[in-house]
């Protein structure tokens, strides 16, 4: 962390600074909507927040540039409150697995409205167990199936949440499944 080149350390504050400048015209869709409004109007607060973000990012940028040799910038020194600092230099941190895990998680969100809650959850849990080095077939099948069933009973039957049923034929299939399970 402390040995990142200057450019990489400058990236985050620079991006935030640029973002806060570039976002300014997009506060409201049509600037004409603001015309004719007296007083501070709906654009005032977001603009103030953009200023706050921009100024802080600029200060961070300056701090990083001014102290290139003092062992990392602000971020490397700051310990996130309450979380134990990440393992030094990621020695026992499996970065590949983290990225695969993130991709799985995002995929779950994408598949949820397409496949419906039960099937998407079943697939996600199974994939996650596999990622977590569980290889026993009995576990890989039983845990997702029983877990998904429990979740369906708790959230769809008891809590009566309108969880996604899926698109088109998948939606009908989910309804059918719920009827089979006695949920509907």
């Amino acid at each position: 962390m402390a040995h990142h080149p200057l450019l990489l350390r400058l990236l985050a504050p620079a991006l935030l600074l640029a973002g806060s400048v570039l976002a300014a015209p997009y506060i409201v869709q049509d600037p004409e909507m603001l015309a004719g409004l007296s007083g501070t109007g709906p654009g005032f607060w977001p603009k103030a927040m953009l200023w706050g973000t921009g100024v802080c990012a600029a200060l961070w940028l300056v701090a990083e540039v001014l102290r290139p040799r003092r062992g990392g910038g602000l971020a490397a020194e700051a310990v996130p409150e309450g979380t134990v600092p990440p393992a030094p230099d990621g020695s026992d941190y499996d970065m590949t697995r983290a990225i695969v895990g993130l991709v799985f998680t995002l995929l779950y969100g994408v598949l949820l409205p397409i496949l419906g809650f039960p099937l998407a959850t079943l697939l996600f849990v199974a994939a996650w167990l596999f990622l977590g080095r569980i290889r026993r077939l009995s576990l890989l099948v039983l845990v997702p199936v029983l877990g998904t069933l429990t979740l369906c009973y708790v959230f769809v039957l008891l809590a009566r949440m309108p969880l996604e049923r899926g698109a088109g034929a998948m939606g009908e299939a989910t309804v059918r499944l719920y009827q089979l399970l006695g949920i509907y």
Binding site: S20, L37, P46, M49, T53, C56, W60
Partner: peptide, 28 residues
């Protein structure tokens, strides 16, 4: 500074959506 930056980012995220007084969408 980092905490302030983080807080301002959070408040900025909080402005997304319909504003409370005029019902006007922002960053929509």
């Amino acid at each position: 500074i980092l905490s302030l930056l983080s807080m301002f980012l959070g408040m900025l995220i909080g402005t997304v959506g319909v504003d409370p007084l005029y019902g006007m969408p922002r960053f929509g």
